[in-house]
């Protein structure tokens, strides 16, 4: 499906550009986007280096373990396939915490670390495990307690009450996350999508 969306976007773009006679835009946007992507990753590198350093300190000092203890039973309900003492649970917890606080930039390094640890426990290295799918589905549904960025944008645009959308945002994201978890639980056992070992 990734293949289909990716190739589809490029082919549709080229076709529309051909129909409208501005193929030059395709060429220029290709190189502009590639450059922008590298700039984005370089910015992200600084952030990742920093947060993974902090995470290592929290891990070694035992702080992560103490925090993880409280939320572990809840996480194990969402990820029944993981081992009780799976190291991935700590990274998943940090990723969710960062997302909840609206610290999107801190969420990425913890998310990638969690994926690396989930992959270590995965039997088939080319196929996503149940836990990986659940983890990413929760990330894409995006529960946020404090949508800090959008509140700041609304304030900048002169809103009378910039944070009035916090309630609707939380309700909508909570609803779609629960929906995603249910759909995931249903599909991961289905004949078409279940993991074959």
């Amino acid at each position: 499906m990734l293949n289909l969306v990716w190739v589809g976007m490029i082919l549709m773009g080229v076709a529309v550009a051909a129909a409208r006679g501005h193929m030059d835009l395709v060429t220029s946007s290709t190189f502009d986007s590639a450059k922008l992507a590298v700039e984005t990753v370089i910015t992200l590198t600084g952030i990742m280096v920093f947060w993974l350093g902090i995470a290592k300190v929290a891990e070694q000092s035992g702080l992560m373990e103490r925090l993880g203890h409280a939320v572990r039973p809840m996480l194990r309900m969402v990820f029944p396939s993981l081992k009780r003492d799976s190291p991935a649970l700590n990274s998943i917890m940090m990723n969710f915490a960062a997302n909840l606080l609206g610290l999107g930039q801190a969420a990425t390094p913890f998310g990638l670390k969690a994926m690396t640890e989930l992959q270590a426990e995965n039997d088939d290295k080319e196929t996503a495990s149940d836990a990986m799918v659940t983890f990413l589905v929760m990330n894409t549904a995006g529960v946020t307690l404090i949508p800090a960025t959008i509140v700041a944008y609304r304030a900048a645009a002169g809103s009378v009450n910039p944070s009035e959308i916090v309630g609707t945002t939380l309700a909508a994201s909570l609803g779609s996350t629960i929906f995603a978890l249910l759909l995931d639980a249903l599909l991961r056992r289905s004949r078409r999508f279940r993991q074959r070992v």
Partner: peptide, 23 residues
């Protein structure tokens, strides 16, 4: 998925897009 070398993503895309629509 790319960062850890997963090629078969099973139902992740389907559920993700359905969740967006629900959102």
């Amino acid at each position: 998925f790319g960062a850890v070398g997963i090629r078969k993503i099973r139902h992740a895309m389907l559920v993700g897009l359905c969740a967006d629509l629900m959102g």
